[in-house]
Design a protein around this nucleic acid. Structure first.
Lengths: 337, 337
DNA sequence: ATTATTTCCGATAACGTTTCCGAAAAAGAT
DNA sequence: ATCTTTTTCGGAAACGTTATCGGAAATAAT
């Protein structure tokens, strides 16, 4: 399977390889007629420029690395799809890696990508991230990088975030308006910007209604986290009227546990989740959840990254905050008695 | 950000670049002492071999393309993770693309990957695949390629398949033993090997119990497919005693529709799904489902591909059939009256 | 002590492009 | 008709590696 090169095309037409190159890159200093001729002949011969040779001389890999905590559940895949769409459109290839919520794996993955000369990175941190210093050094070496959703305040880089404050506030308000007053927020990792903002929204909602009987538990994002926390609350007889969870999985874990112990949802306890998982609509009762614009998050991050890559000088790191919606379902709606 | 090259290392130690190269590739004709010296100095200088230059001369991209119908739901991501694990371990990078269940997109994606000089491909076809000829030509040009799960009989290439026949038979038998006799199988696309094998198992189970009141409907894999088919059955008053669906999503779609129309699961209709989605355990009633060894499928496919790439001559295309399990849950268990 | 063998390393050619420089040919200006 | 400018192209260097070949030094064999 001998592959055919630019030389073969040049020879076939009795032109120089420079000319063939010019034809393929649509340079200004080539006669349109010869260009068409070359392109036609090249197509005929089945010639395709070797991307690797091109990358070598251009000193760019046209690879973009994306690092996410996981892509088993639908949230991150949806973001990735959004990003991949715009990146592929612009001629980039995408390398996806998972940290499996491990700070160490995340670091190793990122380093692998950097060593493989990615032109840029799109990252969402794992829950308990300890790589701040590394990311700071990456940013300062000027490798283009965009963070989305899960990030840390200390890192000064372009970010695409969800408006966690606003929607946490809104969701809490929804619960309060339904008549629930003793609410617990199951939060994610306390260092994440996202967690801080949601807590702020949670508190401000209470403040707005002059309530102060709320509580925050740093449980984590997973279903197991939800289960464990619910069990603890039951054991300690501190079951609240409502729960606002860090994720749908956490919410569902809690919900299942409460149900197993005879609590009825939403009669005894109302529950809200976050990030609109696949399941929310289909479990019983259907789960109220904040929906994030996953696709848009991915697209925005990708565009921000490309802007940074192709326009390095003029680039100023910015934080883009995106909006969402609250899908209200049975799990948080007080029944009419 | 001037990157440092093999030349810099060579100059710093007053050796030739050949020697440095030898040190990094652990060739036999280098003195262990000088090798260590070079490696140490290189690390000190922060030198990393440029993978692109290496790829160019070795005429290998060390990229592997994976094409799947989608990676929103958990099945394909899990397979991909399995594959990625072994590929990264062996120094390959992974490019993932989705066909979105479109034959055209699938073709375009695959061509993009081939043009980008992937060293091999791992593919799972979209439902209604029309690219047989292209795949045949790919196989004949000897680009290493492995198909998994969704494939076509006409394609002669290494395949990693689930033992659909066995588990369809087993699942149907389970339903029959529960006392359900009028069973409908909601099948996937009729051209896929997987569909044919499942139908065969479905039929053989009936044969085994000397039953013949079964029916096959080619519905498709999605939740909507399940909903539509269920609605049709209700409208036509042809609701069976049990349903064996092509996927969990199809099963859940049907289940919801039946429930909405007042049927009770499993009292009025028993339902079984396929592929153990995230949701199966958590919906109500919990869904019986055939579980596939997703991780192992990915690993096996990757190993098969690597074998093919690195050992091209001696390679004979083989089909590997993997085993699974049936997770029996409420949705298919006849209640004791 | 001489020859044969091994061990180790350097020089140089590749890999397939793009880019830079310069020059021939064509077109325009005077 | 001569000079200037533009258009269009070819030659050669460069990108950072690995692979091939050959040769010097070191070791072993006779």
């Amino acid at each position: 399977m001998k592959s055919i090169t630019i030389k073969d095309v040049a020879k076939a037409l009795n032109v120089s390889i420079s000319t063939v190159s010019r034809a393929f890159n649509d340079k200004y200093d080539i006669n349109p007629n010869t260009r068409d001729l070359i392109l036609k002949k090249a197509k005929e011969m089945g010639y395709q420029p070797n991307p690797i040779a091109r990358k070598l001389i251009q000193k760019r890999s046209y690879n973009i690395g994306i690092v996410v905590p996981e892509f088993i559940h639908s949230f991150f895949p949806k973001v990735i799809i959004g990003a991949q769409e715009v990146l592929i459109e612009k001629g980039y290839q995408v390398l996806i890696m998972q940290s499996h919520e491990s700070s160490i794996t995340e670091l190793r993955n990122t380093k692998t990508l950097v060593n493989n000369m990615v032109d840029g990175l799109i990252i969402s941190l794992c829950a308990e991230d300890k790589n701040v210093e590394y990311y700071k050094s990456l940013v300062s070496t000027e490798i283009p990088i965009v963070f989305f959703n899960r990030t840390l305040e200390e890192i000064e880089a372009p970010k695409v975030l969800f408006d966690d404050y606003k929607w946490a506030l809104f969701t809490t308000e929804h619960l309060i308006r339904q008549g629930y007053t003793r609410i617990i927020h199951l939060a994610g990792d306390m260092n994440l910007t996202l967690t801080k903002n949601r807590i702020k929204g949670f508190k401000d909602a209470h403040r707005k209604y002059k309530l102060d009987d709320f509580k925050i538990i740093y449980s984590g994002f997973s279903m197991t986290d939800g289960e464990v926390t619910a069990k603890t609350l039951i054991d300690k007889k501190k079951v609240p009227q409502a729960i606002f969870a860090s994720s749908d999985y956490c919410a569902i874990g809690a919900m299942k546990t409460f149900k197993n112990f005879g609590y009825s949802i939403p009669k005894d306890i109302a529950i809200c989740g976050f990030s609109e998982s696949d399941m929310s609509r289909h479990i019983s009762p259907p789960l109220t959840s904040v929906e994030q614009p996953t696709h848009l998050i991915g697209q925005t991050a990708a565009n921000l990254l490309i802007e940074q890559i192709e326009n390095k000088k003029a680039f100023i790191p910015q934080t883009i905050k995106l909006n969402g919606s609250l899908n209200i379902r049975e799990s948080s709606v007080k029944l009419n008695l």
